[in-house]
């Protein structure tokens, strides 16, 4: 998985180097195109949770001005090795939703975002445990028990908020916070999942996540945005006209 991340970052770097000025950047026109990103927060979290590795990609597109349908997908592996058991989990997840940019600029070629949105997420994963040790000071303990691999899934909705800034032409970085609410989960009667890919801790109904994304927009077209209505300037009160009898 680290190899996939390395190649993804290399590809992004290559796209940055090959970047050219936005297509048809005429005055008053706005650029749009698919924006492909990768989450870097998972790498930092390896320090806190070394047994869990998650890779998340995202893709969005400004379908209408300030409205971005988005799809996120990823893969997660968990490996815990303890004296009393070994635990493994693998799975994929996907999130589908839309983000709405809440910032309004008079300039049409400003792409910074402060956005809110929602997602519908789902995950399909497996987990198993082996080399389970159960000590017993009266009867004989066991040392090589196992729990067979179980296929599980979960569905949830997320409320998202975040910021995104354009560092260079078509290169964006930003972070987002997701509040996830679990809707349904196929449960394992033997053990709770350590972590549901894309959602969070397996024993929680509500979870929070942070993503830090670097993304590149492939400029494919320009369009004329709608006019931003300026606020009317406040002028002096008109003089009152006396009523004629």
């Amino acid at each position: 998985m680290l190899r996939i991340l390395k190649y993804t970052l290399a590809l992004l770097l290559l796209l940055i180097l090959l970047n050219r000025p936005a297509v048809g950047q005429e005055a008053g026109m706005r650029v749009r195109g698919p924006r492909i990103g990768v989450d870097l927060a998972s790498l930092a979290l390896l320090y806190f949770d070394p047994g869990r590795m998650t890779l998340t990609f995202s893709a969005d597109y400004e379908a209408w001005q300030d409205i971005y349908p988005v799809i996120e997908f990823g893969y997660q592996t968990v490996k815990l090795e303890k004296d009393i058991y070994q635990y493994q989990s693998n799975g994929i997840f996907g999130r589908l939703g839309v983000d709405v940019n809440l910032l309004k600029y008079e300039q049409t070629n400003v792409y910074e975002m402060f956005y809110a949105g929602f997602r519908y997420g789902m995950s399909y994963f497996t987990h198993k445990a082996n080399d389970i040790v159960i000590p017993d000071d009266y009867f004989e303990g066991i040392s090589d028990a196992y729990i067979v691999e179980n296929q599980l899934n979960a569905h949830w909705i997320s409320i998202v908020g975040g910021v995104r800034a354009e560092l260079f032409d078509n290169l964006f970085m930003g972070w987002s916070v997701l509040a996830n609410i679990k809707l349904a989960q196929v449960k394992d009667t033997n053990m709770v999942p350590y972590n549901i890919p894309g959602f969070g801790k397996g024993d929680r109904t509500v979870s929070m996540q942070i993503n830090y994304t670097i993304a590149y927009r492939i400029p494919t077209q320009t369009y004329k945005p709608r006019k931003i209505i300026k606020k009317k300037e406040i002028t002096a009160e008109p003089e009152s006209i006396p009523l004629q009898e």
């Binding site: 979290l45 806190f48 949770d49 869990r52 916070v177 350590y194 972590n195 969070g200 801790k201 929680r204 979870s207 929070m208 996540q209 942070i210």
Partner: peptide
């Protein structure tokens, strides 16, 4: 503010 809310294990 939001960092401590993250679902770290």
């Amino acid at each position: 503010l939001v960092l401590p809310l993250h679902s770290c294990q």
